[in-house]
Design a protein around this nucleic acid. Sequence first.
DNA 1: CTGCTATTGATAATGAGTCTCAGAAGTTAA
DNA 2: TTAACTTCTGAGACTCATTATCAATAGCAG
Lengths: 140, 140
Amino acid sequence: MASPNPLKKALKKEGLRYTQQRQSIWDEMCATDEHRDAEEIYLSLRNEGMNVSRATVYRTIDVLVKNNLVRKLELGDGRARYEHKMDSGHHDHLICVQCGKIEEFMDETIEERQDQIVDDLGFKLIRHIHQLFVICNDCQ
Amino acid sequence: MASPNPLKKALKKEGLRYTQQRQSIWDEMCATDEHRDAEEIYLSLRNEGMNVSRATVYRTIDVLVKNNLVRKLELGDGRARYEHKMDSGHHDHLICVQCGKIEEFMDETIEERQDQIVDDLGFKLIRHIHQLFVICNDCQ
DNA sequence: CTGCTATTGATAATGAGTCTCAGAAGTTAA
DNA sequence: TTAACTTCTGAGACTCATTATCAATAGCAG
């Protein structure tokens, strides 16, 4: 059977070693569907008794992002958030400017228009950021 | 005649004083349509002989952003860029991941879909970020 | 002009993220 | 399994954009 562990696969592809820390960080990131920052992930691991450093958290996240296991969200407040890409298709985000809650959305029409815009200019689309800053129901 | 100076109007509205520095910073930001960061604006002013501080540049930009005279762009590289909103309608940005060049785009369909998405959820749209990271013609 | 108060410049502080490097831990070949 | 080699890691120093502090300066109302 093929390796059921996407982390191991990614590390092998990159020629990197499989370590306790990398597994723990990946596990921790998959543990919830929240959008946490590096510090929150670091603190969760410490709370669970893992002896891991901030540097390793950042280093591992970089590997995960590069290998498409994790998405980095830049909300413009100077702290990147991360979400694992295990069980969700592509989507973008709605962020409540009041309570900070993050929801997801996906619109085929917008995706198509994006491709069209880039195509028309003869550019090549690498990635996109689309964030709707809102006031959510609870905050109105 | 009404005040032809949008800066003065904004300062009055906020109950803030009109100063040399604020006028210079606003002038400098209107001087080009480039997307410059705070440091670039600061250095331009110093080059022109203005004795202004980084702190004042940041403080003034905050006022301008809050009053809708300037838009802040977060490109996810840790340096905010700014563009004045004097002669341009709403638009979003294409950023070349290779050379950093920034172009503008605007798509009515996308704007409509955004409103629809937010409406359907019963949220209130405050602002949005839509950035297409591309490889531009020159870089292909 | 005078006095009150906002503003400024210089600089210290902050905070997310990166770098360094010696010791720890995977890996490989035998 | 061990030796030999190389990558990883943790701790803390460091970077760099931005913010906070505070004494001195300068708008502005009367």
